[in-house]
Amino acid sequence: MNESLPITCAGETTGSGSLVRAIVAEAAALLAGLAETGETGRIDLAGLPLTEADKAALEELLGAGEVVAEIAVVGRSTVAETGHAGVWWVRHYGSDDRIAAEVLEITRIPEILLSHPADIAAAARRLGDTLGTASAGATDAIKEDRPDAGP
């Protein structure tokens, strides 16, 4: 950009600490609910007017936890437990590695990490098929090992 035309953009600087506190308060309430009744909750971060500074502040407040997972499905997704057990930070990336959805999940484990029953059933079938092919292959190998047994 031409230095003589310093075009500045407003908005990025108007961070709001109160919004971060409101999110943390909501997360705390949901977490208390999870501890008592087991009910899960979600807070959609992308729908809120959070600035980069707000997000950094929120991340610092929640801290880093023990689990970090990366999912490769139609692009990239990351799931990380925050420093507070049961509060998960889920990010879904779209094209150009841009964040398409960002959700705080208050749960024992985010659903996206779980294998879906339909996928499990399909995998079971596939594994069975693989086993069939594998044993056939093994038989061939054994045959090759014993050249005298061939026709």
Partner: peptide
Amino acid sequence: ISRRAFLKYTSW
């Protein structure tokens, strides 16, 4: 492609 794709899509 697993069912996770649907969950990711609907989350978006």
